[in-house]
Amino acid sequence: MTTKDWLTGATALLCFLGTSAATAEPLIAYSPQGEERAVWIAEQAQSAGHDVTILAAGGGELFDRILAERANPQADVVFGLIDAAMATLKAEGLFQPYVPKWAEGLPEVYRDDADHMVYKFWQTPVVIAYNADALTEADAPASWLQLVEDRYAGKYVIGPTTWQTTKTYLVGMLLRFADEDGEISDAGWDFMQELYDNAIVADSADAKTAAFVNDEAVIDLNWFGGVGRLAENVGYKAVMVDTEGGTPFIAEGIAIMKGTDQLDDAKAFVDWFGSPEFMAAYAAEFGQVPVHPDAIAAAPDAVRRNATLLQPQPIDWDVVAPRIDGWIQRIELDIR
């Protein structure tokens, strides 16, 4: 994307950012943080001596924008996109290798030992939760694969596949049917068909909420923070299940854009942002679970408990990322 194109769709703010990138003033970071979180991060960065401007927008929108700007990248650093998106951008050759200082001590699954480009800093599980007012622990599903059983027919909601959450649990389930090359077996697609046939398929957040309000759905497939929010809105007590075979985790990563003209500043920002000190501070402020063991140790008690609540399902996103579009297409066109 050229500078001219920027002017077409961009708001005044974006134009301002575009020109400021050219004059190499503050560092430009793209991040799908909410407005409030982005402002807080920018303030903290400022007081730590990093002059950074954060462009906050939806994850999908930022992802598309980064790909569109590949000929003329506007960002210096990207952080907060989830595993699959970061893996795709890396595969497209948009990142610059850099091993942050805090990489040491990071569990292997959050490091990028092959390419040294993308390092993860916090995580969110995508869980099965049930309405404890309507279902007992014994009756709740103990694993994702049990959802296709008759007793759960019409009891859970599958959201739109455009949602990161939906994509994540669908991928998590499909991967249990993958061979070494990452191909999904016929049994896997049959399972997916049963999963959809047994579900309430919602095409909006409101349709999903309605299914819970009407007491049809009692099992929530949702990201960690979303479980509590839905339960609170609808008015029930939600309990999360530590499933057999593990729970898929989404982790958010940080990387430096290839071609940045402020490589040193970018490295300094990455080192500061992912540091256990700042991660612990962020956890205290927003309740997000960091992945660095030192950050977890320094985080508030509630966050520490959440960090060990569920067993993660091992997923190699570098292998999975290029296949997701095809899988989602097959689900949308043949199964849904």
Partner: peptide, 14 residues
């Protein structure tokens, strides 16, 4: 994507 017909701009999303 940028199209010469509209001065090399992207209309989608605008």
């Amino acid at each position: 994507e940028p199209n010469l017909l509209v001065a090399n701009r992207v209309l989608l999303g605008g």
